[in-house]
């Protein structure tokens, strides 16, 4: 009788597994700058993403509707991959915006983002910082955002952030705190995945709060191209998820960061 009942439900009750990737795409410039000047094509990026089998993607160093992009890359990716999209704004750039993106094959039912704490020595500036302001706030304005997605009838929160690259631990800790605050990582309302370019090691002092509240997804990075240990995935709350098939995908010239991937399964 239980089986018959389950068959009537509109969605599958199989374990919720998400194939998840995080990738800093360097605005599709490519490491040889070949993207810049040829319309920032994304075909090779899409092909590589498809080999990962990704259901959900977070991306950093993304431009939306900027004047140099010949088309809206978030929409192009969404179209090519058949995914819902959310742009997380860090700052205005050339008639458009710079920031991060979440893409999901599962529908997004709620969206939110905020800026990380930041002040520039020159009020109003969002890039480049000097002196005490650089030490206290980092180089550029950064942000965090989330998309709540519906996976087989269950809501999962996907959080994407890009932390400061100057490397001051206190700056990063403040930005991590900002992530915790926006996404309620200390008391998750939904099973949550946090990922992005953290610009530091995954278990470094700067990432203490993430590691205290959640679980770090370990990836063997031997042989990785580009920046080896900056892009990370965390799951929340502790013990809620099991990670498997965690690995990197080498990106060649497509970016200075590799794709970090994992299959994340809810432990119900």
């Amino acid at each position: 009788m239980a089986t018959a009942f389950l068959a009537l439900l509109p969605f599958s009750l199989t374990a919720q597994s998400i194939r998840f990737i995080t990738w800093n795409v360097k605005s599709f410039e490519c490491t040889d700058d070949s993207g810049n000047g040829s319309g920032f094509p994304i075909t090779e990026h899409v092909n590589l993403i498809k080999t990962t089998g990704a259901d959900v993607i977070v991306m950093n160093e993304f431009e939306s509707f900027t004047s140099r992009m010949t088309s809206e890359k978030m929409a192009d990716l969404g179209r090519e991959l058949g995914m819902f999209t959310y742009f997380i704004e860090s700052y205005v750039k050339n008639e458009g915006w710079y920031g991060n993106v979440i893409l999901s094959k599962y529908p997004i039912v709620s969206y939110a983002s905020q800026l990380h704490p930041y002040e520039n020595e020159t009020p109003g500036k969002t890039q480049g910082n000097n002196g005490d302001y650089r030490v206290k706030y980092g180089e550029d304005q950064r942000s965090v955002g989330y998309a709540d997605i519906l996976v087989n009838g269950k809501t999962v929160r996907i959080v994407c952030t890009h932390l400061d690259h100057v490397g001051n631990t206190q700056v990063l800790q403040n930005q991590v705190k900002s992530c915790v605050e926006l996404a309620s990582l200390d008391k998750p309302v939904y099973p949550t995945i946090v990922a992005g370019d953290m610009n530091t090691g995954g278990t470094s002092a700067a990432m203490t709060q993430f590691n205290e509240l959640g679980d770090y997804v370990t990836v063997n990075r031997s042989g990785i191209q580009g920046y080896a240990n900056l892009d990370h995935i965390y799951t929340f709350p502790k013990g809620k998820w099991t990670a498997s098939e965690a690995r990197y995908y080498n990106q060649g010239k497509l970016s200075d960061h590799s794709i970090i991937a994992a299959t994340l399964t809810l432990n119900d």
């Binding site: 742009f87 704004e89 709620s110 969206y111």
Partner: peptide, 11 residues
Amino acid sequence: NTPSRSFAGTS
């Protein structure tokens, strides 16, 4: 027309 800081869905 602009990226939204909050587009909150309630079930």
